[in-house]
Amino acid sequence: MPGNHPSGDKRFKLLDAAMKKHQFRADALLEVLHTAQELFGFLQPDLLIYIARQLKLPPSRVYGVATFYHFFSFTPKGEHSCVVCLGTACYVKGAAALQNAVEKELDVKAGQTRSDGKASVSIARCVGACGLAPVAVFDGEVAGGLTAEAAVKRVKGWLEHGSG
């Protein structure tokens, strides 16, 4: 199937190549979603529809699979991101307080991005560092043994020094 997204956006060419590599097989959906998220940063509806058409899958199946995994995101990510672990170990050690503090400081709810695009907060179910609980991941860097104050300190700078 020739992949030709009408937008002419180069990224669709790369996505087409990925789908072609899997011969547009429906069971390659997960790999294709991964590639799409890498290319576009998040999965917007028209991207999901495009994938559904190319792989000849029902849109609801594509949406269902994508939303099953916390890994996929459906809104643009902020410049900075904070992922608070709410897995069992972290939860027991007070992760809920961390979450509240970070949400309050950044003025955004978990799962969302600030309207100025500066930061987003999300939650995870165990990031595999239970020994360090409670844990949060700041811009990809894992920090353990956190207090609410320490977490707030980490994110405070994001709003102050612009893109810093």
Binding site: P58, P59, S60, V62, Y63, G64, T67, F68
Partner: peptide, 16 residues
């Protein structure tokens, strides 16, 4: 189809 998981799972039509 079913979107989301656990407590947040919902049946959805097309792209939700």
């Amino acid at each position: 189809d079913v979107a989301g998981r656990g407590h947040n799972a919902r049946v959805i039509t097309d792209l939700n």
